[in-house]
Design a protein around this nucleic acid. Structure first.
Lengths: 213, 213
DNA sequence: AACGTTGTGATACGAACGTACCACGATGGT
DNA sequence: ACCATCGTGGTACGTTCGTATCACAACGTT
């Protein structure tokens, strides 16, 4: 029926099918046939656009990381520069928490890939070193900017804080994912730490932010 | 040849074989046959002592969590009460980092199980809710104890700090696992935060603890 | 001494997986 | 108008997996 097909677009569609079905049933339980069914194409086509499963998984990871990067960027843009760097930092940290379905899926799959990357060096480089480094640099930049504007309490090490906050975000994200903690409690913890780094200021908009449940 | 066999002991041996081989090749790549070979027994025996793979995995998780709990307890005991609560807290946080092979395996497999638990509620309850809650309670207790001894800076919320530090530990652990960060840099971050919570005091014994590589 | 239970081995089975192969309609270049 | 190539479907192959089955040796009990 169709003549010439945009390969990149088709690969993206299939990769998103992979992300959907993996988010639903777990990455370990996803086969080529599941991806094909979810994408509404034949098994042969998945083979055609990604010759091997490994390549499909790799592309899926890159696509996932890219989509998530765009999401974070959009939230940062939405936060705007108006209320100052603190709002941007809040947006950055909150965007990484698994609150809605999309971020839940991201955390779930990203962690799955991270586990695979421990034994499969092919996966590692870009999404598990470079991307976190970039996030760290971004947060570090925001903190430095705030520091230069004299918004931070004295004695704050912007670099160490950046690393620590991102690690905290990752750890809290996992806790939320497995149901140990609620997004609201994570929000409250961030609020506490931002109050400690900045002076006391205007709070976070979302969530009830009760002390701790 | 042998007459009566201690089931519990045998199950433990097999579970440890599971942990070893899974730590080497990844939990997703481990089959019943691999566990049998690693334990030096026949496939049938693994089936005999754990009827199904799911039960083997479940027991493996509980065993892993238990062994790790003992490890942390031993480190806490080794830290002793003498240098005060700060040393205990340092020991608690450091014990959770993947520094040697044993803790690396623990982090790797525990994360693998956590990913599985997202889609399989059978796994969740004990090791992913109760155990972290216990760790949190322990750290919280140590912080409270330090607070009552007037060792903490004013304005420190012991509960929030406990949760945040443990989340940071988990996040840093994953970063170390995938090779983004070194154990030493994680140590430096803990030192920074403990200096902030306590007054400035005696440093951590292990590691070079350079500012940040 | 006989017997039921327990521990162990070898092997078979059915399903699912990733991949390879074959066939064919449609399309675009010449 | 031909033909090589692209896109697509269907299906088969070989492997591996978890599990089930059969057989039998060794032990404790009576």
């Amino acid at each position: 029926m169709p003549k010439r097909v945009d390969h990149a677009e088709r690969r993206t569609e299939i990769a998103e099918a992979l992300v959907r079905v993996a988010g639903r049933r777990g990455l370990h339980a996803v086969g080529m046939r599941d991806v094909a069914a979810e994408a509404g194409v034949s098994l042969r086509l998945v083979q055609y656009y990604f010759e091997t499963k490994e390549k499909l998984l790799l592309f899926g990871l890159r696509h996932l990381a890219e989509r998530f990067g765009e999401r974070v960027a959009a939230r940062l843009r939405a936060a705007g520069d108006h209320p100052g760097p603190r709002a941007m930092i809040e947006a950055l940290l909150m965007a990484a928490l698994p609150t809605d379905e999309e971020s839940r899926t991201f955390h779930h799959l990203y962690t799955s890939y991270a586990v695979l990357a421990v034994n499969d060096p092919t996966l590692a480089a870009q999404p598990f070193i470079k991307d976190p480094d970039a996030a760290e640099a971004a947060l570090h930049g925001l903190l430095q900017q705030a520091q230069e504007s004299d918004l931070l309490r004295p004695g704050v090490d912007s670099r160490t804080e950046a690393v620590g906050l991102l690690a905290m975000s990752a750890g809290l994200g996992t806790s939320i994912l497995v149901g140990q903690r609620t997004p609201d409690s994570a929000t409250a913890i961030f609020e506490y730490h931002l109050n400690r780094i900045f002076g006391p200021g205007p709070g976070i908009s979302a969530g009830s932010a009760s002390p701790l449940p």
